[in-house]
Write a protein that binds this DNA or RNA. Sequence first.
DNA 1: ACTAATTGGTTGCTAATCTAAGTATTATTC
DNA 2: GAATAATACTTAGATTAGCAACCAATTAGT
Lengths: 153, 153
Amino acid sequence: MEKAGNELTQKLMDAFFRIMRMHPKNHVPGVKHSEIVILLFIKRKMDKTQTGIRIGDLSRIMRVTSPTVTQFINRLEEKGFVKRKSDPGDRRYIRVILTKQGEDVLQQAWEALVADFNSLIKYLGEEQSRLLADLLLKSYDFFTKDIDVNREG
Amino acid sequence: MEKAGNELTQKLMDAFFRIMRMHPKNHVPGVKHSEIVILLFIKRKMDKTQTGIRIGDLSRIMRVTSPTVTQFINRLEEKGFVKRKSDPGDRRYIRVILTKQGEDVLQQAWEALVADFNSLIKYLGEEQSRLLADLLLKSYDFFTKDIDVNREG
DNA sequence: ACTAATTGGTTGCTAATCTAAGTATTATTC
DNA sequence: GAATAATACTTAGATTAGCAACCAATTAGT
C-alpha cells in the first residue's frame, strides 16, 4: 500500500486502536464504569474544596459535553449516589455532591481499580509504568488539542 | 481514601481512562472508523494469503463477538466495500474480500491515519513512540488475557 | 430595558458492542 | 446410515457512552 507508513506507524496505530476498543470492566454490579469515574472526580473536588462540583467543570475535566454529564448525574441521583445543590452565588449553577452511598460504592470500585492497576504496574515495572502514563497523557493532549479550541467556558 | 493507590497508580489509571474515552475520528465521510479497521484487517489478510478472511478470524483478531463482526460486514457489503464468498472447502465458512471501492476508501482513510500517527511520532520522538507502542500492547495483553480464556474457535 | 452570554436540561439520535436464539453445515458417535 | 454434537454465521433486541439541536432560566453587558 502506498504511503504505508513504516512499521512503527502501523504498530503505534494498532496499539492505540486496541486500547481504544477496550471497555473498562464494571467492578460494582449495577454501576457503570463511567459513573464510577464521575464519582471519583466529584470526590476529588469535595476533598479539595469541601464543595460540590459543577456540571460544566465535569464537562471540561472529562472532555465530554454538558448534556452528557447531565444525563450521568441524573442517573447517579436516581441511584442515590449524588445530590444536586443550588449554588447561592449564582442560580444558574448547581453543585453536585456525593452521598454516603456514593462514597461507599466509589470506595468499593476504587479498591478494585487500584488492585488492577497495581497489578499492571507490577507487570510492566514501575519505571515503565511511569513512562507509559506520561506518554499516554502527552498523546491524549496531542489528539485532543484541536478539540479544546472548540471547548471553552 | 484508604487503599488510595499511590500517585503512580492514579496517574496511570487516569491516563488509560482518558484514552479509552477518546473516539477515533472519521477520516472518510460516511465510513466509520471501525469499518476502516475491518477493511484494514481484510486487506492485510488478502495481501498475505490471497484469500478472504473469515468472520471468526476477524472476531478473534478484534476481540469482539462474531455477531458484531457480521453486522459490520453487512454494512460494508451494503456500501459495496466488501463481498462475501463461500468457502468451497466448508460451506459453514464465508470469506470476506475487499472490492475495488473498498480498497479505494481504505487507501483514503489510511493516508489520513498515517499522517496523524506520523505527526504523533514526530511529537513524541521515535524512540518514545516505539516504547509507547510496546507498552500499550503489553498493557492490552495484560487486560485482555482473561478474556482470551473465554474466546476460542 | 433590552440583548447577549452562560449554565444546565431534555430529547432524539449514533456508534459500537453484547446476548439470546436461530439456521445451515460438518464432525462425531453408535 | 441415523442421530447427536459442535461449529460458523445470522438476526433481533438490548445496552452503554456519547453527541447535536434546541430550550428555559439566569446573569452579564450595554
